[in-house]
Design a protein around this nucleic acid. Structure first.
Length: 479
RNA sequence: GGCCCCAUCGUCUAGUCUGGCCUAGGACACCAGGUUUUCAUCCUGGCAACAGGGGUUCGAAUCCCCUUGGGGUCACCA
């Protein structure tokens, strides 16, 4: 079943938008397959849709790939022997194939207009009949066809699908998948504007670039017989395939904007650690074994196999993504976290000295799942304090003022940061014959404005002596 | 609707190819305890699945068939 060609795989996005989360996973599987087999990973840009291409999209796709750590051996910004890697620059090759096909008769001109076809389809729909392509032009003689073309009649070029054949696709995830050629229409290979279509160029490029395994989304499975038949017509090698299951939204349908962010860039912006997202994407339709959930890139490469990819679609579970992001954050050194978090602090408008950032990161590390959580939770600590309703209520309880004053008095002198802060609070509590919480809670509210948050000792350390004392005083006035 | 793909806890999955080690394992979520000044982290425990029906077999989550369910696709998009 496996072909014995050197492993060459490709990811082939079209620059018509941001990198989709499903595309990112497909790219990741391609990358993993190449890297775990000593093969090459090629990035090819499918820019045949001149109407919708944009350089902005291309740049953002390249950036997203790099962010995920998916480096490519050949493609844009990388030399290779099989270029160019932009389809728009490969038209000469396609032209040669078109001429060959016209000469050998497996391509033919179809003079039906788009409007004609659309109304035929409409009619088929309303009659609840299966649409079949308009075969009127299939048997037109070469001379007549040429004459009409010379007369200036508009046409597309279709692929003449052989009758009565069975196309077998070798798929490393699904086994052999069979299609009857009679179920495949005479698809459009060249548009009326002369630009070849996806199925045409994709198959030719995969062959020309000596792609050994085409790993792509399951939505392409039905295109595969078209591409295989084209390779056969051109007498070019047919790659092996691996059609990976779709990523589904919470509605169970193909992931779309309706059910959450679909672009990788959105997840970058919202502060997801790259390694965590990488790990999570792998988990959607793949497992190393029956136990391992969190793993590194190296562990993946040591264990990656196409046949381990599952066949069914996977729902995108943001709960699990959140959890795994937290796992990574908790396992990252404070130094590295500071580097990762710094841009988010700047974006939130905080200019923090490195020592202060480190203190903050240390205190917040156990309760953050995203880099952006650090800047969000830093709010009351490095900027003006605001008291939420619960905090105000807590501060209004009886006896609070004296506790705040007692603590403030203790903080006035002595070591900073206080090494025995907790003991100090316990002492005050027992002196007043109340539980520790009676003192701790209002103290926390006075210092942070909220009932929850990091260790108070950390909070003091972040705030500094002066700020701590002034907050106690300020809260005291509220009481 | 035609064609194609798929089907194990609510979710992601291990086990399926190569039937018996499966009383079906892990993780997320959820619930309950514990640690903790709070929240979080952390620890312990719990809940929870082989879609249904027929075969084959000494034995089926695993092989075969049917049904049901879900998804993809049916463009001069990719």
């Amino acid at each position: 079943m496996t072909n014995d060609r050197p492993v060459r795989v490709r990811f082939a996005p079209s620059p018509t938008g941001m990198l989709h989360i499903g595309g990112a996973r497909t790219a990741l599987f391609n990358w993993a397959f190449a890297r775990s087999n000593g093969g090459k990973f090629i990035l090819r840009i499918e820019d045949t849709d001149t109407e919708r291409n944009s350089d902005e999209s291309l740049q953002s796709i390249l950036e997203s790939m790099k962010w995920l750590g998916l480096d490519w051996d050949e493609g844009p910004q990388a030399e290779g022997d099989f270029g160019p890697y932009y389809q728009s620059q490969r038209v000469d090759m396609y032209q040669a194939a078109i001429e060959k096909g016209m000469g050998e008769g497996w391509l033919y001109r179809c003079f039906a207009t788009a409007d004609e076809l659309e109304s035929q389809r409409e009619e088929a729909r309303s009659n609840k009949v299966n649409w079949q392509h308009d075969a009127r032009w299939r048997e037109l003689s070469a001379n007549e066809s040429q004459a009409k073309a010379d007369a200036g009649d508009a046409f597309v070029i279709r692929f003449r699908v052989p009758v009565g054949e069975c196309v077998v696709i070798k798929d490393h995830i699904r086994g052999e998948v069979k299609f009857a050629s009679d179920e495949v229409e005479d698809w459009v290979a060249v548009r009326s504007n002369g630009m070849p279509t996806y199925n045409f160029v994709c198959a030719i490029d995969d062959s020309e670039m000596q792609i050994s395994h085409v790993i792509r989304g399951e939505e392409h499975l039905v295109n595969t017989p078209k591409q295989v038949m084209l390779c056969q017509a051109l007498d070019m090698p047919v790659p092996d395939f691996a059609h990976v299951p779709l990523i589904l939204g919470s509605d169970g349908k193909k992931l779309s904007k309706r059910t959450g962010d679909t672009a990788l860039g959105d997840y970058i912006k919202s502060g997801h650690p790259d390694d965590a997202l990488f790990n999570f994407l792998c988990l959607l339709g793949f497992a190393i074994d029956d136990k391992t959930t969190v793993f590194s890139r190296d562990e993946l490469l040591q264990n990656f196999e196409l046949k381990k990819i599952s066949k069914g679609g996977a729902l995108f579970d943001t709960d699990k993504l959140n959890w795994i992001c937290g796992e990574y954050i908790r396992n990252t050194s404070v130094d590295d976290l500071c580097t990762a978090v710094a841009p988010f602090m700047v974006a939130a408008g905080y200019q923090l000295a490195p020592e202060l950032l480190a203190k903050l990161v240390t205190a917040l590390q156990p309760r953050a799942n995203l880099y952006s959580h650090f800047s969000e939770q830093a709010a009351g600590l490095v900027s003006e304090v605001t008291y939420d309703e619960k905090a105000k209520k807590e501060l209004s309880k009886e006896g609070v003022l004296q506790y705040l004053e007692l603590v403030a008095a203790q903080l006035q002198d002595g070591e900073w940061p206080p090494t025995d802060f907790f003991d100090l609070v316990k002492q005050i509590a027992s002196d007043n014959e109340v539980g520790v919480g009676k003192v701790m809670k209002p103290l926390r509210c006075a210092l942070t404005g909220a009932l929850g948050g990091p260790e108070l000792a950390d909070v003091l350390n972040i705030l500094g002596r002066e700020q701590s004392i002034s907050r106690l005083a300020k809260a005291g006035q509220l009481v």
